[in-house]
Simulated assay, not measured.
Amino acid sequence: MKKVVILCFMFIIAPLLIVGQSLENVEFISPFHDDVAAIKKDGKWGFIDKQGNLVIDFRTDLVNTKTDDGEYPMFSYERCKIVEVKAGISYFGFIDTSGKTVIEPQFLNITNFNKNNAIALKLDKQIISRNTALDKDMVNYRYFEVLINTEGEITYYLTQDAVNIVLDKSFLRAAPQITSKLLTDELYAVMGKNKTWNIIKVKQEL
């Protein structure tokens, strides 16, 4: 009798132990970074974990990174780049591994994080005069290359001289290029006005 009972029990629970999840018609699968991999479907990107679970649903605001394996969104130090377009201008920020926006899109360009730092283009607005007839401020827009931490706080100004821009989609059709380069965990190469490089040491905050 015991054998019969045991066999019946096994047949009852066996189907319950076979749990599967399938993702079909996936167009691209990236290597894993920070224990998640980007997958593309129907022109949108999402992320799966190492068990194949979709941990971040498909969305259109993820920003690709160029790698030897192709171009795809990726996490670096638990941050992934996102973009939001306002009045035709692209602004960049970051999400965490839960998909939550932790750094609001506000920068004109950004790099992936290296430990606690990423390079970003911080937009700065200057009021240069006031048009009393139109009751309107005359403004000038410019940006600096800065380091930000994983909370989006500026920790260091890599460039002291700002770059003036016209904040209009007719003139700013693509994100301005970041010229500063990460050399090591603490060394950055910053381009000066005469197109030569300055080597700056910035200690990482961990």
Rank of each mutant, 00 (worst) to 15 (best):
G20Q: 12
P176A: 10
Y91P: 01
A14D: 00
L7Q: 06
N164T: 10
T60E: 14
I95D: 00
V36S: 09
T196K: 13
Q160Y: 07
R142I: 00
D124E: 14
E205M: 06
L182F: 10
M74Q: 15
L108V: 07
D35Q: 14
K40R: 14
E71K: 15
K122S: 15
A87Q: 14
I110H: 00
S22D: 08
K86Q: 11
I127H: 00
M191R: 14
I48G: 01
Q51L: 12
T97K: 15
F75A: 04
T65H: 02
T159M: 03
I154G: 05
Y91G: 06
I154A: 05
P15Q: 03
Q51C: 04
E78K: 13
E205N: 07
D57V: 10
K100I: 08
I89P: 00
E78L: 07
G99T: 11
S180L: 04
K40T: 07
A175Q: 06
I110P: 00
K203H: 05
L206M: 06
G152Q: 06
Y72E: 05
Q160D: 13
Q21W: 09
E145H: 04
L187M: 11
I148Y: 05
F92T: 03
H33Q: 13
D124I: 15
W197P: 03
V139C: 02
I178G: 02
E186F: 03
N112L: 14
T67P: 06
Y77T: 09
T196Q: 12
V83G: 04
L183C: 04
V102W: 03
N109W: 08
N140Y: 02
P73T: 07
N149S: 01
I178F: 05
V4F: 00
L134H: 08
V139D: 00
I39N: 07
F32P: 02
K40H: 08
I127P: 01
L23M: 13
I103G: 01
A133V: 14
V5T: 04
F11C: 12
T132G: 11
E24R: 12
E24C: 05
K2W: 07
Y143I: 09
Q21D: 05
V19L: 09
L54I: 07
V139T: 13
E104W: 05
V5M: 07
E205L: 10
L62R: 07
L182C: 06
D61T: 07
F107V: 09
N25K: 14
L123A: 09
K125T: 12
I13T: 11
P15L: 03
T196D: 11
M1F: 10
E104R: 08
Y72H: 15
N164P: 00
I39K: 08
I6N: 00
S22Q: 11
L172K: 05
I103F: 02
